[in-house]
């Protein structure tokens, strides 16, 4: 039953808050078993999209299908579970009590001891939540999300506020779990998290998807280099026709060529033109991320 439907189908989602359009005609399809990173800067609309995906808020327009049904139904049946930034915990319950209490709300769950173990918090089961660190509380939320053994796990910036070690522990726990074939969607603004833990990256900016591909494809967007040279009267058309060239920009006597094959461009410039001062710089994932997710550049 799970395999006949996409895990997630978002179609033309729009959500406005007053004059602000937080999500702007966003469509996305996620297949069962995919591990998808929802990557974008703060305010890109990631959390708003996730709220609609989980049925916590209603889209102004567009439709949401989760595992072939409505979000509410998927939540009620334990087919989807989530770790949210905003989900609070009761400070005066212990970690173990919080898990056991939540387990009572479902028809059927994994044993409390098992989810505590998988979230790596067995040793603090008797600790009162109010005395747990932010990272420990986040792993408790993760344990709660593991209870129904969901087909789809949604995480909204799950490691915000954690130290480096806490982040590593959290992702190790998640990765151990993702190997079991669960669909995972996580929002993050950390590039390295998307890179290390996702099969697919969806880049969002201002409520729209600006890039969507495998981690390798997104990395290729970033793998290009920029060749810069001093070349008065450069022939833009000829440069643009070279293999691998993405963009050519002329600034005064300088020419900037963005390309996947910097060797070919450099060879052309040095052998076929009067270009001098040739510089080759690589663009990293950070540059691509910034270019794609901040103010539109000449891409």
């Amino acid at each position: 039953m799970t395999s006949t439907h996409p895990a997630v189908e978002l179609d033309g989602l729009t959500k406005r808050f007053g004059a602000v359009t937080a999500v702007d005609g966003l469509s996305l399809r996620v297949q069962p078993g995919e591990v998808v990173a929802f990557l974008g800067p703060n305010g890109a609309g990631k959390t708003t999209t996730i709220d609609m995906l989980l049925g916590l808020s209603r889209p102004d327009t567009g439709t949401v299908r989760v595992l072939g049904g409505t979000p509410d139904d998927a939540v009620a049946r334990g087919r989807v579970a989530a770790v949210l930034q905003t989900g609070g915990l009761l400070k005066d319950l212990t970690v173990g009590e919080t898990v056991r209490m939540t387990a009572h709300f479902y028809r059927h769950t994994r044993p409390a001891a098992e989810v505590l173990e998988r979230a790596g918090i067995t040793d603090i089961a008797d600790r009162v939540v109010g005395r747990c660190s932010g990272g420990q509380q986040q792993r408790l939320r993760f344990a709660l999300a593991l209870l129904p053994d969901p087909d789809l796990m949604v995480l909204d910036e799950p490691t915000t506020g954690m130290d480096v070690e806490g982040r590593r522990d959290f992702w190790q726990a998640l990765r151990r779990d993702a190997r079991r074939g669960r669909t995972v969607i996580f929002a993050t603004h950390y590039l390295d998290e998307a890179d290390a833990y996702a099969d697919r990256i969806v880049l969002v900016r201002q409520g729209r998807i600006v890039a969507d591909g495998t981690t390798a494809e997104i990395k290729n967007l970033a793998a290009g280099r920029t060749v810069r040279a001093t070349l008065p009267g450069a022939d833009q058309a000829a440069l643009a026709a070279l293999p691998g060239v993405d963009a050519v920009e002329v600034r005064g006597d300088s020419v900037l060529v963005r390309t996947g094959d910097s060797d070919a461009v450099a060879r052309h410039l040095l052998t076929r033109t009067a270009a001098r001062d040739v510089e080759i710089t690589s663009r990293n994932l950070e540059d691509a991320f910034l270019a794609l997710t901040t103010a539109q550049t000449g891409a």
């Binding site: 916590l56 939540v75 049946r77 579970a81 609070g88 939320r141 709660l144």
Partner: peptide, 16 residues
């Protein structure tokens, strides 16, 4: 208190 802490929002992610 539970609304202020966000627990009621957490509960909306359960069948309760």
């Amino acid at each position: 208190t539970e609304r202020a802490l966000g627990w009621s929002r957490q509960l909306r992610l359960t069948p309760l």
